[in-house]
Design a protein around this nucleic acid. Structure first.
Length: 507
RNA sequence: GGCGGGUUGGCGGAGAGGUUACGCAGCGGAUUGCAAAUCCGUGAAGACCGGUUCGAUUCCGGUACCCGCCUCCA
Protein backbone atom coordinates (compact mmCIF):
# COMPACT_ATOMS: atom_id res chain seq x y z
CA UNK A 1 0.00 0.00 0.00
CA UNK A 2 1.16 3.47 -0.83
CA UNK A 3 2.54 5.38 2.13
CA UNK A 4 1.16 8.88 2.19
CA UNK A 5 3.51 11.48 3.63
CA UNK A 6 2.12 14.74 4.89
CA UNK A 7 3.65 17.87 6.35
CA UNK A 8 2.28 18.11 9.87
CA UNK A 9 2.12 21.70 11.03
CA UNK A 10 2.08 20.47 14.61
CA UNK A 11 5.54 18.90 14.35
CA UNK A 12 6.78 21.06 11.45
CA UNK A 13 7.92 17.92 9.70
CA UNK A 14 6.88 15.68 6.86
CA UNK A 15 5.66 12.44 8.43
CA UNK A 16 4.38 9.06 7.28
CA UNK A 17 0.64 9.08 7.51
CA UNK A 18 -0.56 6.02 9.42
CA UNK A 19 -4.29 6.14 10.12
CA UNK A 20 -5.63 5.31 13.56
CA UNK A 21 -8.06 2.92 11.87
CA UNK A 22 -7.50 2.13 8.18
CA UNK A 23 -11.11 1.04 7.99
CA UNK A 24 -12.24 4.53 8.98
CA UNK A 25 -9.81 7.31 8.12
CA UNK A 26 -11.15 10.54 9.59
CA UNK A 27 -10.58 14.11 8.44
CA UNK A 28 -12.03 17.41 9.61
CA UNK A 29 -11.72 20.63 7.63
CA UNK A 30 -12.91 24.06 8.70
CA UNK A 31 -15.71 25.12 6.39
CA UNK A 32 -17.37 28.40 5.54
CA UNK A 33 -19.19 30.96 7.59
CA UNK A 34 -22.29 31.31 5.50
CA UNK A 35 -22.94 35.01 5.21
CA UNK A 36 -21.86 35.62 1.62
CA UNK A 37 -20.66 34.03 -1.61
CA UNK A 38 -17.41 32.12 -1.26
CA UNK A 39 -14.48 34.01 -2.69
CA UNK A 40 -11.66 32.34 -4.55
CA UNK A 41 -9.49 32.24 -1.44
CA UNK A 42 -12.16 30.17 0.28
CA UNK A 43 -12.00 27.74 -2.63
CA UNK A 44 -8.35 26.85 -2.22
CA UNK A 45 -8.70 24.66 0.88
CA UNK A 46 -11.86 23.13 -0.55
CA UNK A 47 -10.00 21.96 -3.64
CA UNK A 48 -6.82 21.01 -1.78
CA UNK A 49 -8.62 18.88 0.78
CA UNK A 50 -10.88 17.47 -1.90
CA UNK A 51 -7.78 16.05 -3.55
CA UNK A 52 -6.66 14.64 -0.20
CA UNK A 53 -10.13 13.15 0.31
CA UNK A 54 -9.93 11.53 -3.11
CA UNK A 55 -6.42 10.24 -2.46
CA UNK A 56 -7.47 8.73 0.88
CA UNK A 57 -10.49 7.10 -0.74
CA UNK A 58 -8.27 5.78 -3.50
CA UNK A 59 -5.78 4.29 -1.05
CA UNK A 60 -8.07 3.12 1.77
CA UNK A 61 -11.28 2.58 -0.18
CA UNK A 62 -14.21 4.92 -0.79
CA UNK A 63 -16.16 3.54 2.16
CA UNK A 64 -13.30 3.86 4.60
CA UNK A 65 -12.88 7.61 4.75
CA UNK A 66 -15.00 10.03 6.76
CA UNK A 67 -14.67 13.67 5.82
CA UNK A 68 -16.36 16.34 7.93
CA UNK A 69 -16.53 19.95 6.83
CA UNK A 70 -18.60 22.20 9.05
CA UNK A 71 -20.90 25.06 8.20
CA UNK A 72 -20.76 28.00 10.57
CA UNK A 73 -24.28 29.34 10.62
CA UNK A 74 -24.14 31.28 13.86
CA UNK A 75 -21.97 34.32 13.52
CA UNK A 76 -22.19 38.06 13.98
CA UNK A 77 -21.60 38.71 10.30
CA UNK A 78 -24.72 36.68 9.47
CA UNK A 79 -26.64 38.62 12.09
CA UNK A 80 -25.41 41.89 10.70
CA UNK A 81 -26.46 40.96 7.17
CA UNK A 82 -29.92 39.89 8.35
CA UNK A 83 -30.26 43.11 10.31
CA UNK A 84 -29.24 45.10 7.26
CA UNK A 85 -31.95 43.40 5.23
CA UNK A 86 -34.52 44.04 7.90
CA UNK A 87 -33.64 47.72 8.02
CA UNK A 88 -33.86 47.79 4.23
CA UNK A 89 -37.48 46.70 4.60
CA UNK A 90 -37.31 42.94 4.17
CA UNK A 91 -40.30 41.04 5.48
CA UNK A 92 -40.11 38.50 8.29
CA UNK A 93 -38.57 38.25 11.72
CA UNK A 94 -34.86 38.54 12.26
CA UNK A 95 -34.67 34.79 12.89
CA UNK A 96 -36.38 34.13 9.58
CA UNK A 97 -34.09 36.52 7.78
CA UNK A 98 -31.07 34.83 9.34
CA UNK A 99 -32.42 31.46 8.30
CA UNK A 100 -33.07 32.67 4.76
CA UNK A 101 -29.61 34.13 4.53
CA UNK A 102 -27.84 30.97 5.67
CA UNK A 103 -29.95 28.68 3.48
CA UNK A 104 -29.32 30.85 0.46
CA UNK A 105 -25.61 31.02 1.12
CA UNK A 106 -25.28 27.28 1.70
CA UNK A 107 -27.00 26.61 -1.63
CA UNK A 108 -24.57 28.99 -3.36
CA UNK A 109 -21.66 27.34 -1.64
CA UNK A 110 -22.71 23.88 -2.77
CA UNK A 111 -23.22 25.04 -6.34
CA UNK A 112 -19.93 26.93 -6.53
CA UNK A 113 -17.79 24.24 -4.91
CA UNK A 114 -19.52 21.60 -7.00
CA UNK A 115 -18.51 23.53 -10.11
CA UNK A 116 -14.91 23.20 -8.95
CA UNK A 117 -15.32 19.44 -8.87
CA UNK A 118 -15.30 19.11 -5.09
CA UNK A 119 -17.02 16.00 -3.77
CA UNK A 120 -19.52 16.59 -0.98
CA UNK A 121 -18.00 15.74 2.40
CA UNK A 122 -19.38 12.74 4.27
CA UNK A 123 -20.89 15.06 6.86
CA UNK A 124 -21.55 18.76 6.69
CA UNK A 125 -22.73 19.64 10.18
CA UNK A 126 -24.18 23.04 11.00
CA UNK A 127 -23.18 24.78 14.18
CA UNK A 128 -26.78 25.47 15.12
CA UNK A 129 -27.47 21.71 15.20
CA UNK A 130 -24.75 21.11 17.79
CA UNK A 131 -25.47 23.79 20.40
CA UNK A 132 -26.23 21.14 23.04
CA UNK A 133 -22.88 19.42 22.45
CA UNK A 134 -21.10 22.75 22.68
CA UNK A 135 -22.83 23.58 25.94
CA UNK A 136 -21.87 20.17 27.32
CA UNK A 137 -18.22 20.68 26.42
CA UNK A 138 -18.19 24.17 27.92
CA UNK A 139 -19.74 22.80 31.12
CA UNK A 140 -17.04 20.14 31.30
CA UNK A 141 -14.32 22.73 30.87
CA UNK A 142 -15.81 24.87 33.64
CA UNK A 143 -16.23 21.86 35.94
CA UNK A 144 -12.65 20.85 35.46
CA UNK A 145 -11.35 24.34 36.07
CA UNK A 146 -10.17 25.10 32.55
CA UNK A 147 -12.78 27.77 32.02
CA UNK A 148 -14.57 30.36 34.09
CA UNK A 149 -17.68 32.46 33.86
CA UNK A 150 -17.82 36.17 34.36
CA UNK A 151 -20.25 39.01 33.97
CA UNK A 152 -19.25 41.85 31.76
CA UNK A 153 -20.21 44.85 33.88
CA UNK A 154 -20.60 47.01 30.79
CA UNK A 155 -23.39 44.68 29.67
CA UNK A 156 -25.34 45.14 32.88
CA UNK A 157 -28.47 47.17 32.91
CA UNK A 158 -28.57 50.22 35.20
CA UNK A 159 -28.69 49.18 38.84
CA UNK A 160 -32.33 50.10 39.35
CA UNK A 161 -33.38 47.64 36.63
CA UNK A 162 -31.42 44.67 37.76
CA UNK A 163 -34.19 43.17 39.82
CA UNK A 164 -36.75 43.77 37.11
CA UNK A 165 -34.67 42.01 34.48
CA UNK A 166 -33.35 38.92 36.17
CA UNK A 167 -32.74 37.04 32.96
CA UNK A 168 -30.50 39.69 31.56
CA UNK A 169 -28.71 40.16 34.84
CA UNK A 170 -27.86 36.47 34.89
CA UNK A 171 -26.12 36.52 31.55
CA UNK A 172 -22.50 35.60 31.68
CA UNK A 173 -19.52 35.07 29.45
CA UNK A 174 -17.78 31.73 29.61
CA UNK A 175 -14.07 32.08 28.93
CA UNK A 176 -11.29 29.58 28.45
CA UNK A 177 -8.35 30.22 30.78
CA UNK A 178 -5.26 29.68 28.65
CA UNK A 179 -2.95 29.46 31.66
CA UNK A 180 -4.61 26.20 32.71
CA UNK A 181 -3.40 24.46 29.56
CA UNK A 182 0.32 23.81 29.50
CA UNK A 183 0.49 23.16 25.75
CA UNK A 184 -1.24 26.38 24.74
CA UNK A 185 0.55 27.94 21.77
CA UNK A 186 2.35 24.78 20.66
CA UNK A 187 0.66 24.50 17.29
CA UNK A 188 1.46 28.03 16.21
CA UNK A 189 4.76 28.27 18.03
CA UNK A 190 3.90 31.08 20.40
CA UNK A 191 3.92 31.41 24.12
CA UNK A 192 1.26 33.09 26.16
CA UNK A 193 3.89 35.61 27.27
CA UNK A 194 4.80 36.47 23.67
CA UNK A 195 1.22 37.10 22.81
CA UNK A 196 0.67 39.40 25.73
CA UNK A 197 3.86 41.27 24.95
CA UNK A 198 2.90 41.69 21.33
CA UNK A 199 -0.80 42.33 21.80
CA UNK A 200 -2.01 45.24 19.76
CA UNK A 201 -5.65 44.98 20.56
CA UNK A 202 -7.57 46.23 23.47
CA UNK A 203 -8.24 43.50 26.00
CA UNK A 204 -11.70 43.04 27.42
CA UNK A 205 -11.47 44.08 31.09
CA UNK A 206 -13.20 40.97 32.38
CA UNK A 207 -10.58 38.57 31.05
CA UNK A 208 -8.25 37.08 33.63
CA UNK A 209 -5.56 36.72 31.02
CA UNK A 210 -5.52 38.82 27.86
CA UNK A 211 -5.22 35.65 25.76
CA UNK A 212 -8.33 34.02 27.24
CA UNK A 213 -10.97 33.42 24.62
CA UNK A 214 -14.74 33.26 24.57
CA UNK A 215 -16.62 29.96 24.79
CA UNK A 216 -20.04 31.47 25.29
CA UNK A 217 -21.29 35.04 25.11
CA UNK A 218 -24.55 36.76 26.03
CA UNK A 219 -27.12 37.59 23.37
CA UNK A 220 -29.52 40.46 23.79
CA UNK A 221 -33.04 40.25 22.45
CA UNK A 222 -32.01 41.37 18.98
CA UNK A 223 -29.61 38.47 18.51
CA UNK A 224 -30.03 34.73 18.10
CA UNK A 225 -29.51 32.97 21.39
CA UNK A 226 -30.00 29.72 23.26
CA UNK A 227 -30.73 29.14 26.92
CA UNK A 228 -27.81 27.90 28.91
CA UNK A 229 -26.56 27.68 32.48
CA UNK A 230 -24.90 31.05 31.78
CA UNK A 231 -28.04 32.73 30.55
CA UNK A 232 -29.35 33.27 27.06
CA UNK A 233 -26.44 33.47 24.70
CA UNK A 234 -24.57 32.03 21.77
CA UNK A 235 -21.34 30.08 21.34
CA UNK A 236 -17.96 31.59 20.64
CA UNK A 237 -16.46 30.86 17.27
CA UNK A 238 -14.02 28.08 18.17
CA UNK A 239 -16.13 25.70 20.22
CA UNK A 240 -18.23 24.44 17.33
CA UNK A 241 -15.35 22.63 15.66
CA UNK A 242 -14.38 20.95 18.92
CA UNK A 243 -17.94 19.83 19.59
CA UNK A 244 -18.74 18.68 16.07
CA UNK A 245 -15.50 16.81 15.47
CA UNK A 246 -16.03 14.99 18.77
CA UNK A 247 -19.61 14.11 17.85
CA UNK A 248 -18.83 12.90 14.34
CA UNK A 249 -15.23 11.70 14.44
CA UNK A 250 -14.64 10.76 18.06
CA UNK A 251 -12.08 11.73 20.66
CA UNK A 252 -9.17 11.22 18.33
CA UNK A 253 -9.03 11.47 14.57
CA UNK A 254 -6.45 11.59 11.82
CA UNK A 255 -6.35 14.90 10.01
CA UNK A 256 -7.49 18.44 10.71
CA UNK A 257 -7.16 20.94 7.90
CA UNK A 258 -7.75 24.55 7.07
CA UNK A 259 -6.14 27.76 5.91
CA UNK A 260 -2.92 28.88 7.54
CA UNK A 261 -4.68 31.98 8.81
CA UNK A 262 -6.73 29.71 11.06
CA UNK A 263 -3.67 28.25 12.74
CA UNK A 264 -3.85 30.99 15.31
CA UNK A 265 -6.02 31.58 17.14
CA UNK A 266 -8.77 29.29 15.81
CA UNK A 267 -6.96 25.97 15.73
CA UNK A 268 -4.91 26.72 18.81
CA UNK A 269 -8.14 27.32 20.68
CA UNK A 270 -9.79 24.21 19.30
CA UNK A 271 -6.87 22.18 20.59
CA UNK A 272 -7.08 23.81 24.00
CA UNK A 273 -10.80 23.12 24.31
CA UNK A 274 -10.78 19.58 23.01
CA UNK A 275 -7.63 18.37 24.69
CA UNK A 276 -8.65 19.80 28.07
CA UNK A 277 -12.21 18.51 27.82
CA UNK A 278 -10.91 15.04 26.89
CA UNK A 279 -7.86 14.88 29.16
CA UNK A 280 -7.53 11.90 31.47
CA UNK A 281 -5.40 11.34 34.61
CA UNK A 282 -2.78 9.41 32.63
CA UNK A 283 -2.86 11.96 29.80
CA UNK A 284 -3.35 15.27 31.63
CA UNK A 285 -2.68 17.45 28.58
CA UNK A 286 -4.86 15.39 26.26
CA UNK A 287 -1.94 14.79 23.93
CA UNK A 288 -3.48 11.59 22.64
CA UNK A 289 -6.73 13.32 21.87
CA UNK A 290 -8.11 15.35 19.00
CA UNK A 291 -6.31 15.67 15.67
CA UNK A 292 -3.00 13.94 14.96
CA UNK A 293 -2.08 15.62 11.69
CA UNK A 294 -2.57 19.33 11.09
CA UNK A 295 -2.51 20.50 7.49
CA UNK A 296 -2.60 24.16 6.54
CA UNK A 297 -2.86 25.62 3.09
CA UNK A 298 -1.19 28.92 2.29
CA UNK A 299 -3.10 31.95 1.13
CA UNK A 300 -4.27 32.95 -2.30
CA UNK A 301 -2.92 36.30 -3.38
CA UNK A 302 -3.87 38.96 -5.86
CA UNK A 303 -0.98 41.14 -6.89
CA UNK A 304 1.12 39.96 -3.99
CA UNK A 305 -1.46 40.55 -1.30
CA UNK A 306 -3.68 38.08 0.45
CA UNK A 307 -7.14 37.92 -1.04
CA UNK A 308 -9.54 38.85 1.72
CA UNK A 309 -12.79 40.58 2.27
CA UNK A 310 -11.27 43.09 4.63
CA UNK A 311 -8.82 44.21 1.94
CA UNK A 312 -11.61 44.26 -0.64
CA UNK A 313 -9.36 42.62 -3.24
CA UNK A 314 -11.44 39.49 -3.57
CA UNK A 315 -13.60 38.04 -6.26
CA UNK A 316 -16.01 35.19 -5.85
CA UNK A 317 -15.94 31.82 -7.52
CA UNK A 318 -19.27 32.77 -9.07
CA UNK A 319 -17.71 35.91 -10.59
CA UNK A 320 -15.17 33.74 -12.38
CA UNK A 321 -17.71 31.17 -13.51
CA UNK A 322 -19.94 33.94 -14.82
CA UNK A 323 -17.02 35.39 -16.72
CA UNK A 324 -16.76 32.09 -18.56
CA UNK A 325 -13.85 30.60 -16.67
CA UNK A 326 -14.93 26.98 -16.18
CA UNK A 327 -14.67 25.32 -12.79
CA UNK A 328 -12.23 22.78 -14.19
CA UNK A 329 -9.92 25.59 -15.25
CA UNK A 330 -10.10 27.17 -11.80
CA UNK A 331 -9.34 23.79 -10.26
CA UNK A 332 -6.38 23.31 -12.58
CA UNK A 333 -4.93 26.68 -11.67
CA UNK A 334 -5.36 26.00 -7.96
CA UNK A 335 -3.65 22.61 -8.24
CA UNK A 336 -0.72 24.07 -10.17
CA UNK A 337 0.87 25.45 -7.02
CA UNK A 338 1.68 23.35 -3.98
CA UNK A 339 -0.79 24.01 -1.19
CA UNK A 340 1.95 25.04 1.20
CA UNK A 341 2.98 28.03 -0.90
CA UNK A 342 1.25 31.31 -1.45
CA UNK A 343 -0.32 31.46 -4.88
CA UNK A 344 -0.90 34.41 -7.15
CA UNK A 345 -4.04 34.29 -9.24
CA UNK A 346 -3.30 35.64 -12.73
CA UNK A 347 -5.03 35.79 -16.08
CA UNK A 348 -1.98 34.14 -17.66
CA UNK A 349 -2.37 31.06 -15.48
CA UNK A 350 -6.02 30.85 -16.46
CA UNK A 351 -5.07 31.04 -20.12
CA UNK A 352 -2.48 28.29 -19.85
CA UNK A 353 -4.74 26.08 -17.76
CA UNK A 354 -7.56 26.37 -20.26
CA UNK A 355 -5.21 25.60 -23.13
CA UNK A 356 -3.87 22.51 -21.41
CA UNK A 357 -7.31 21.26 -20.42
CA UNK A 358 -8.67 21.64 -23.93
CA UNK A 359 -5.68 19.65 -25.17
CA UNK A 360 -6.16 16.92 -22.56
CA UNK A 361 -9.88 16.73 -23.03
CA UNK A 362 -9.40 16.40 -26.78
CA UNK A 363 -6.97 13.56 -26.24
CA UNK A 364 -9.19 11.71 -23.75
CA UNK A 365 -12.58 12.30 -25.35
CA UNK A 366 -14.28 8.95 -25.80
CA UNK A 367 -11.28 7.07 -24.39
CA UNK A 368 -11.59 4.42 -21.66
CA UNK A 369 -9.64 5.30 -18.53
CA UNK A 370 -6.64 3.05 -17.93
CA UNK A 371 -5.61 2.74 -14.30
CA UNK A 372 -2.62 0.47 -14.86
CA UNK A 373 -0.16 3.35 -14.45
CA UNK A 374 -2.09 5.37 -11.87
CA UNK A 375 0.70 4.63 -9.38
CA UNK A 376 2.71 7.51 -10.82
CA UNK A 377 -0.01 10.01 -9.93
CA UNK A 378 -0.62 8.29 -6.63
CA UNK A 379 3.05 8.58 -5.77
CA UNK A 380 3.14 12.28 -6.57
CA UNK A 381 0.08 12.98 -4.44
CA UNK A 382 1.38 10.79 -1.64
CA UNK A 383 4.34 13.09 -1.32
CA UNK A 384 2.61 15.74 0.75
CA UNK A 385 -0.12 16.20 -1.84
CA UNK A 386 2.17 17.37 -4.60
CA UNK A 387 -0.54 18.25 -7.06
CA UNK A 388 1.87 20.10 -9.29
CA UNK A 389 4.01 16.98 -9.71
CA UNK A 390 0.86 14.97 -10.38
CA UNK A 391 -0.10 17.34 -13.18
CA UNK A 392 3.39 16.95 -14.62
CA UNK A 393 2.89 13.18 -14.70
CA UNK A 394 -0.27 13.74 -16.68
CA UNK A 395 1.66 16.03 -18.98
CA UNK A 396 4.14 13.28 -19.85
CA UNK A 397 1.20 11.06 -20.83
CA UNK A 398 -0.26 13.87 -22.84
CA UNK A 399 3.03 14.17 -24.75
CA UNK A 400 3.49 10.44 -25.15
CA UNK A 401 2.15 8.30 -27.97
CA UNK A 402 2.27 4.95 -26.22
CA UNK A 403 -0.80 2.71 -26.11
CA UNK A 404 -1.55 3.53 -22.51
CA UNK A 405 -1.07 7.26 -22.62
CA UNK A 406 -4.57 8.54 -23.41
CA UNK A 407 -6.23 6.12 -21.02
CA UNK A 408 -3.68 6.87 -18.31
CA UNK A 409 -4.20 10.58 -18.79
CA UNK A 410 -7.91 10.10 -18.39
CA UNK A 411 -7.49 8.00 -15.24
CA UNK A 412 -5.07 10.51 -13.76
CA UNK A 413 -7.40 13.42 -14.44
CA UNK A 414 -10.15 11.50 -12.74
CA UNK A 415 -8.07 10.89 -9.60
CA UNK A 416 -7.32 14.61 -9.48
CA UNK A 417 -11.03 15.33 -9.65
CA UNK A 418 -11.45 16.48 -13.23
CA UNK A 419 -14.68 15.19 -14.76
CA UNK A 420 -14.38 13.21 -18.01
CA UNK A 421 -14.40 15.01 -21.35
CA UNK A 422 -17.82 13.54 -22.19
CA UNK A 423 -19.36 15.35 -19.21
CA UNK A 424 -17.74 18.75 -19.60
CA UNK A 425 -20.17 21.20 -21.09
CA UNK A 426 -17.82 23.96 -22.08
CA UNK A 427 -15.48 21.50 -23.76
CA UNK A 428 -18.33 19.92 -25.70
CA UNK A 429 -19.44 23.37 -26.70
CA UNK A 430 -15.96 24.28 -27.87
CA UNK A 431 -16.18 21.28 -30.19
CA UNK A 432 -18.85 23.28 -31.89
CA UNK A 433 -21.55 21.75 -34.04
CA UNK A 434 -20.93 24.65 -36.37
CA UNK A 435 -18.03 23.38 -38.43
CA UNK A 436 -15.08 25.68 -38.30
CA UNK A 437 -16.12 27.75 -35.33
CA UNK A 438 -14.94 27.26 -31.81
CA UNK A 439 -15.37 29.50 -28.85
CA UNK A 440 -13.90 29.31 -25.45
CA UNK A 441 -17.10 30.02 -23.59
CA UNK A 442 -16.14 33.45 -22.32
CA UNK A 443 -18.41 35.24 -24.73
CA UNK A 444 -21.40 33.94 -26.60
CA UNK A 445 -20.54 34.85 -30.18
CA UNK A 446 -22.88 35.79 -32.96
CA UNK A 447 -22.52 32.40 -34.54
CA UNK A 448 -24.44 33.16 -37.69
CA UNK A 449 -22.52 36.29 -38.54
CA UNK A 450 -19.20 34.72 -37.75
CA UNK A 451 -19.99 31.61 -39.74
CA UNK A 452 -20.94 33.71 -42.73
CA UNK A 453 -17.76 35.75 -42.58
CA UNK A 454 -15.54 32.72 -42.18
CA UNK A 455 -17.24 31.05 -45.10
CA UNK A 456 -16.63 34.13 -47.22
CA UNK A 457 -13.00 34.14 -46.12
CA UNK A 458 -12.61 30.53 -47.24
CA UNK A 459 -14.15 31.38 -50.61
CA UNK A 460 -11.83 34.32 -51.15
CA UNK A 461 -8.86 32.15 -50.36
CA UNK A 462 -10.05 29.42 -52.72
CA UNK A 463 -10.34 32.08 -55.41
CA UNK A 464 -6.81 33.16 -54.52
CA UNK A 465 -8.14 36.65 -53.94
CA UNK A 466 -5.57 37.13 -51.24
CA UNK A 467 -5.79 40.92 -50.87
CA UNK A 468 -9.48 40.75 -50.05
CA UNK A 469 -8.99 37.66 -47.88
CA UNK A 470 -6.28 39.32 -45.79
CA UNK A 471 -8.38 42.45 -45.34
CA UNK A 472 -11.34 40.40 -44.20
CA UNK A 473 -9.22 38.35 -41.85
CA UNK A 474 -7.78 41.47 -40.27
CA UNK A 475 -11.30 42.78 -39.77
CA UNK A 476 -12.45 39.58 -38.10
CA UNK A 477 -9.38 39.52 -35.91
CA UNK A 478 -9.94 43.14 -34.91
CA UNK A 479 -13.34 42.09 -33.59
CA UNK A 480 -11.65 39.70 -31.17
CA UNK A 481 -11.75 36.44 -33.09
CA UNK A 482 -8.62 34.44 -33.65
CA UNK A 483 -8.60 33.05 -37.17
CA UNK A 484 -6.98 29.70 -37.81
CA UNK A 485 -6.69 28.17 -41.25
CA UNK A 486 -6.09 24.49 -41.06
CA UNK A 487 -6.46 21.74 -43.63
CA UNK A 488 -8.54 23.87 -45.96
CA UNK A 489 -11.02 24.89 -43.27
CA UNK A 490 -11.22 28.25 -41.60
CA UNK A 491 -11.65 28.18 -37.85
CA UNK A 492 -12.56 31.07 -35.65
CA UNK A 493 -11.84 31.13 -31.96
CA UNK A 494 -13.76 33.78 -30.08
CA UNK A 495 -11.55 35.54 -27.56
CA UNK A 496 -12.33 37.40 -24.36
CA UNK A 497 -12.26 40.84 -26.02
CA UNK A 498 -14.78 39.86 -28.67
CA UNK A 499 -16.74 42.84 -29.97
CA UNK A 500 -19.93 41.82 -31.83
CA UNK A 501 -20.46 45.35 -33.16
CA UNK A 502 -17.18 45.26 -35.07
CA UNK A 503 -18.13 41.90 -36.54
CA UNK A 504 -21.53 43.14 -37.67
CA UNK A 505 -19.86 46.09 -39.36
CA UNK A 506 -17.95 43.75 -41.65
CA UNK A 507 -21.05 42.38 -43.30
C1' G B 1 7.18 44.65 18.78
C1' G B 2 6.33 38.90 18.98
C1' C B 3 5.75 34.47 15.95
C1' G B 4 5.68 31.79 11.22
C1' G B 5 6.63 31.20 5.87
C1' G B 6 9.01 32.57 1.34
C1' U B 7 13.02 34.46 -2.31
C1' U B 8 14.65 29.35 -8.68
C1' G B 9 15.79 31.11 -15.94
C1' G B 10 11.67 36.62 -19.65
C1' C B 11 7.08 34.64 -16.87
C1' G B 12 4.84 30.53 -14.03
C1' G B 13 6.60 26.56 -11.15
C1' A B 14 8.83 21.51 -9.14
C1' G B 15 12.06 17.70 -7.61
C1' A B 16 16.74 16.00 -6.18
C1' G B 17 23.56 16.89 -2.25
C1' G B 18 26.63 15.25 -7.99
C1' U B 19 23.04 13.43 -14.08
C1' U B 20 17.66 17.68 -19.29
C1' A B 21 12.42 19.34 -14.64
C1' C B 22 8.23 20.81 -17.03
C1' G B 23 4.82 24.56 -19.14
C1' C B 24 4.24 29.42 -21.43
C1' A B 25 6.92 33.03 -24.05
C1' G B 26 11.54 33.57 -27.19
C1' C B 27 14.84 31.83 -30.99
C1' G B 28 16.07 28.27 -35.33
C1' G B 29 13.94 24.75 -38.79
C1' A B 30 9.80 21.99 -41.40
C1' U B 31 5.09 23.36 -43.32
C1' U B 32 2.20 27.68 -45.39
C1' G B 33 0.05 32.42 -50.87
C1' C B 34 1.15 35.27 -46.19
C1' A B 35 -0.01 34.44 -41.22
C1' A B 36 -1.96 31.17 -37.58
C1' A B 37 -2.07 26.22 -35.89
C1' U B 38 0.97 21.86 -35.81
C1' C B 39 5.68 19.14 -35.66
C1' C B 40 11.17 19.05 -34.73
C1' G B 41 15.21 21.45 -32.34
C1' U B 42 17.30 25.16 -28.88
C1' G B 43 19.51 29.18 -25.38
C1' A B 44 18.34 30.76 -20.41
C1' A B 45 18.18 29.97 -13.21
C1' G B 46 18.58 29.27 -8.27
C1' A B 47 18.30 37.08 -3.65
C1' C B 48 23.14 38.27 -1.14
C1' C B 49 27.38 36.83 2.24
C1' G B 50 29.70 33.02 4.84
C1' G B 51 30.06 27.71 6.54
C1' U B 52 29.80 22.09 6.06
C1' U B 53 31.29 18.86 1.74
C1' C B 54 35.46 16.02 -3.08
C1' G B 55 30.98 18.63 -4.77
C1' A B 56 25.15 22.81 -2.87
C1' U B 57 20.30 25.84 -6.23
C1' U B 58 19.41 21.54 -2.64
C1' C B 59 22.14 21.11 4.37
C1' C B 60 23.67 25.07 8.36
C1' G B 61 24.32 30.37 9.93
C1' G B 62 23.80 35.55 8.87
C1' U B 63 21.99 39.87 5.75
C1' A B 64 18.34 42.07 2.56
C1' C B 65 13.61 42.06 0.64
C1' C B 66 8.54 40.03 0.33
C1' C B 67 4.24 37.69 2.55
C1' G B 68 1.15 35.91 6.56
C1' C B 69 -0.65 35.62 11.76
C1' C B 70 -1.02 38.37 16.47
C1' U B 71 -8.68 41.64 15.07
C1' C B 72 -13.39 38.56 11.49
C1' C B 73 -10.79 35.67 7.84
C1' A B 74 -9.49 29.76 3.87
Amino acid sequence: MTTIRLHNTKTRRKEDFVPIDPANVRMYVCGPTVYDRAHLGNARPVVVFDVLFRLLRHVYGPDHVTYVRNITDVDDKINAEALRRKKAGAAGTLEELIHDRTEETIAWYHADMGALGALPPTFEPRATEYIEQMKAMIATLIDRGYAYTVRDPSNDPPAEFVLMDREKAAQEHALFAVETYGDYGKLSGRSVEDMIAGARVEVAPYKRNPADFVLWKPSDASLPGWDSPWGRGRPGWHIECSAMSLALLGEQFDIHGGGIDLQFPHHENEIAQSCCALATPDDPLGRNKFARFWLHNEMLQVEGKKMSKSLGNFFTVRDLLDRGIPGEVIRFVLLGTHYSKPMDWTAEKVRQARQTLVDWYSKTDGVEPDYSLIGYVERALSNDLNTHAALEELRTWSNSSSDHSAGSLKAGMSLLGFPPAEAVDWFRKSQSRYPGISYSGSVEPKIDTLFLLLTRLTELRTEKNYDAADALRKGIEAAGVKVIVFAGTTFGEVLDDFDPAKLEALQ
